[in-house]
Design a protein around this nucleic acid. Structure first.
Lengths: 328, 328
DNA sequence: GAAATAAATGTAATCGATTACAATTCGATT
DNA sequence: AATCGAATTGTAATCGATTACATTTATTTC
């Protein structure tokens, strides 16, 4: 692969002139410009990002931290991030941590090593202390999962309110025994959604019963299946379920479908509006987050930080999507 | 952020010695080593990948090209790629092309620019001519979708055989009217799966009817729904369907579920064994590809190419997973 | 046509690492 | 104590770009 020297020699100019042709096009005469462009074409030259980035000490790469791409919740957010990044000549590096600290370390080091210019973290399992340390020196944005009193700018939705509305919807349908399928409460979103759940129950003087609150070990379908089976085993069964994630809700639906005898219908509400949620039978009532927008705005925030600007936290609006799973 | 000069000064040694401490640890006395290590710790130093990579002219980044991460088919493959890459101190850059040529260009340029050391393409929509040109100068591997007579090494499964077995399974269940839901036949996998479908029908002297072969515009759920609706509209309805992708098959299932009156059950087989396929109602019979393995081996092939080795094409085994959708 | 000004181009330092080669130090051997 | 060889450390070139500053060339003005 040709380098800038060879182009310069071939065009009979200096490397500076070649560089000028490549970048801020000012101050180079049409004749030399075309000579250089010709040389570039002839030698099939592509400027090395490595050299450029070293000199400019930037990589134009953004890190996107997420626990796993298997959760479809992230796909639309990522599309938003990607589109916005590319529009500003940045690229993104999708980093699955699989909730493993050693992976996290690798990615944090990439930022320190100047291999990435900033980070958008969507990973609830991230080590917040280490992330905060990183954020002292490098641009970092939290997306979706965030820290309430932290210093890192975030974009998210009002999980508490959304959960409250979801559960209120179930109550309005006449349900008085409403279960919650949630994940580990070390995650803020889980705590917030539980608070919303409890607020709705309290408001309508319904009891909050511990045996109707099931904590799962993860968000994969099978945990939803298992959680629902546990709830169905109880002598006093809930008539409705709010799950903090569509994946869990879909697993719960599956468990209900498998229990042929349980003829009393159980209403279900999920959270995220993943694409699969309209393919289930029945289709799933859920909370829709503006995921694409969230991705776009998170990226704009990050690009702002990279430029050294101050950015404000953002809380986006959500929406309750009513489908068959609460129409039984 | 400190650089290697500052460490050298602080430790009272030359940059060469610092570099030696960082890399091939030989030939540096214990005393100097600990002096240097102390300086590194004190200044909180992290070597810049940019400088290192420029000098070594490698980036230790692998590009993974795929049309979209929204198709769960890719998630397990990506896990395999990622694990293998990380084990060899490489990282991966997930590149969604969204089937847009301009995106593709960006990513190809990253390789030419030395920002990535090689490419694994899983994108059926990739511009094969341009990819072939790239492959003349840079390491490239095809994963899943491939080119039969091309020069680029590939890893895949035998789509024709898998399709043949899937359709044969439907025939053995007594179905004689078997429809095919497939995507655009510009993709090799679609052509191969159609061939398998036709081979099975021919073998059992069943007619191949054009009106039972439906071509979709994409692999998203809704295209499967639409395809099935079209098939159900026909006066002579098929009794079974083979779809070339689980996403299409799940959409087809949905369409069938929505047609309350159509009481005659329709058997369905998909392809890929994505995680959703065991969450549908009924659960989906499908072809399982060893996706994780495929990702691992694709990466090993690519790393081989990067080292300059020759690598052989690989065809992995698949498996028919029989579930409820063919047990009606 | 000479001087002043503007435009175009070149020279060389720089970014942060690696590494061939040279120089130095050290200990062992005689 | 002198010599030799091995081990350690340093010097400086290098990777491929960008850019401040210097220099050359072209254009304008009187």
């Amino acid at each position: 692969m040709a380098n800038i020297q060879q182009i310069a020699k071939r065009a009979g100019v200096s490397v500076a002139t070649v560089s000028r042709v490549l970048n801020h096009a000012t101050s180079v005469s049409p004749k030399t410009r075309s000579k250089v462009e010709e040389a570039i074409k002839e030698l099939n030259y592509e400027p090395s990002m490595l050299g450029r980035n070293l000199r400019n000490s930037e990589s134009r790469l953004l890190l996107v931290l997420l626990p796993t791409i298997a959760n479809p919740f992230y796909t639309e957010i990522i599309n938003g991030i990607q589109d916005t990044a590319i529009a500003s000549d940045y690229n993104i590096l999708l980093c699955e941590t699989d909730s493993k600290p050693e992976r996290e370390n690798i990615y944090f080091n990439m930022v320190k090593n100047k291999l990435a210019d900033g980070v958008i973290s969507m990973d609830p399992t991230v080590n917040m202390q280490r992330l905060n340390e990183l954020a002292e020196h490098y641009p970092v944005i939290l997306c979706s999962e965030y820290e309430e009193k932290g210093d890192i700018p975030y974009i998210t939705v009002d999980s508490e309110l959304a959960a409250y509305q979801a559960v209120k919807h179930l109550i309005k349908l006449g349900n008085e025994k409403i279960a919650l399928i949630t994940s580990d409460e070390k995650f803020l979103y889980a705590r917030m959604r539980r608070l919303g759940y409890e607020r709705a129950l309290k408001e309508f003087d319904l009891p909050i019963r511990d045996e109707w609150i099931y904590h799962t070990k993860g968000l994969e379908f099978q945990y939803g299946v298992h959680a629902m089976r546990m709830l169905l085993k109880q002598e006093d069964k809930p008539t409705a379920v709010f799950a903090v994630s569509d994946t869990l809700a879909i697993g719960a639906l599956k468990a209900i479908n498998m229990e042929r005898e349980s003829s009393d219908p159980i209403a279900i509400v999920g959270f995220d509006n993943i694409s699969f949620s309209s393919m289930t039978n029945p289709t799933l009532t859920t909370i829709s987050q503006p995921m694409y927008t969230m991705g776009c705005q998170a990226t704009e925030m990050l690009l702002g930080r990279i430029k050294g600007e101050k950015v404000e936290n953002i809380v986006l609006d959500h929406e309750l999507i009513i489908r068959e799973s609460t129409m039984v």
